[in-house]
Amino acid sequence: MTGPAAEYLAHGVAGRHTDLPETTAGTVRLDVSGNGSTEHWHLTIDQQTVRVTRSAEEAELVVRADREVFDQLATGRTHIVGALLRNDVTARGRLPLLTVLRRILPGPPGARHPRDVARQEGR
């Protein structure tokens, strides 16, 4: 798989995510379909650290979508919950992990965290 989703999953997800709660732990498998095949990405989340492998191993949460949808998620052009509500994404398993996945995926281009905005304004 090539494109924004593959690039983000291969190079932008693994590592420490300090915005995740320290007690968060779980596994997520992303099933990316396109061109008549499905690619699998397995995320292991533990103590604010995310590990990424290319594996079809079973996970607590399995998220499926077309490559185009994952590309939009990986570039922040769409939100995981919105995509789920539009049926662009399907999910099965431990659904609270979707909120963790939402924090791992990038926000909209040009978006700023409210705390950063407040600091800049001197509040």
Rank of each mutant, 00 (worst) to 15 (best):
35 N>K: 13
43 L>D: 07
87 N>C: 05
121 E>D: 11
36 G>I: 01
84 L>N: 07
84 L>I: 09
63 V>D: 11
95 L>M: 14
28 V>E: 02
94 R>E: 14
113 H>I: 05
22 E>M: 07
113 H>Y: 14
45 I>Q: 08
46 D>A: 13
6 A>G: 15
105 L>D: 10
88 D>S: 04
91 A>P: 00
4 P>M: 00
19 D>T: 11
102 R>T: 06
120 Q>H: 11
52 V>S: 09
27 T>I: 12
110 G>N: 05
27 T>Q: 10
100 V>I: 15
50 V>I: 10
75 T>N: 00
78 T>Q: 02
17 H>F: 05
84 L>M: 13
34 G>V: 08
106 P>G: 04
53 T>Y: 07
44 T>A: 13
56 A>D: 15
88 D>Q: 07
96 P>L: 04
19 D>M: 04
89 V>M: 03
107 G>V: 02
10 A>Y: 05
66 D>L: 10
44 T>G: 08
4 P>C: 01
13 V>L: 15
18 T>M: 12
9 L>Y: 12
122 G>K: 10
64 R>T: 15
28 V>R: 02
100 V>N: 07
27 T>C: 10
14 A>Y: 05
23 T>V: 05
46 D>L: 08
54 R>F: 06
37 S>E: 03
5 A>K: 00
97 L>T: 03
15 G>K: 13
72 Q>S: 14
49 T>M: 07
117 V>W: 12
68 E>G: 09
50 V>S: 09
23 T>M: 03
37 S>D: 03
109 P>R: 04
55 S>M: 02
41 W>G: 03
29 R>N: 11
71 D>W: 06
20 L>M: 04
41 W>C: 05
108 P>V: 04
115 R>Q: 06
69 V>F: 07
104 I>R: 14
51 R>G: 13
37 S>F: 01
92 R>T: 01
100 V>C: 08
72 Q>Y: 13
41 W>Y: 12
29 R>H: 11
121 E>T: 12
107 G>P: 00
2 T>W: 06
35 N>Y: 06
106 P>R: 06
15 G>Q: 07
38 T>I: 15
2 T>D: 15
89 V>W: 08
81 V>W: 13
32 V>P: 00
39 E>R: 12
77 R>L: 13
106 P>H: 10
72 Q>P: 03
19 D>E: 11
99 T>F: 13
70 F>T: 01
71 D>T: 08
55 S>T: 02
24 T>D: 06
31 D>T: 04
79 H>C: 02
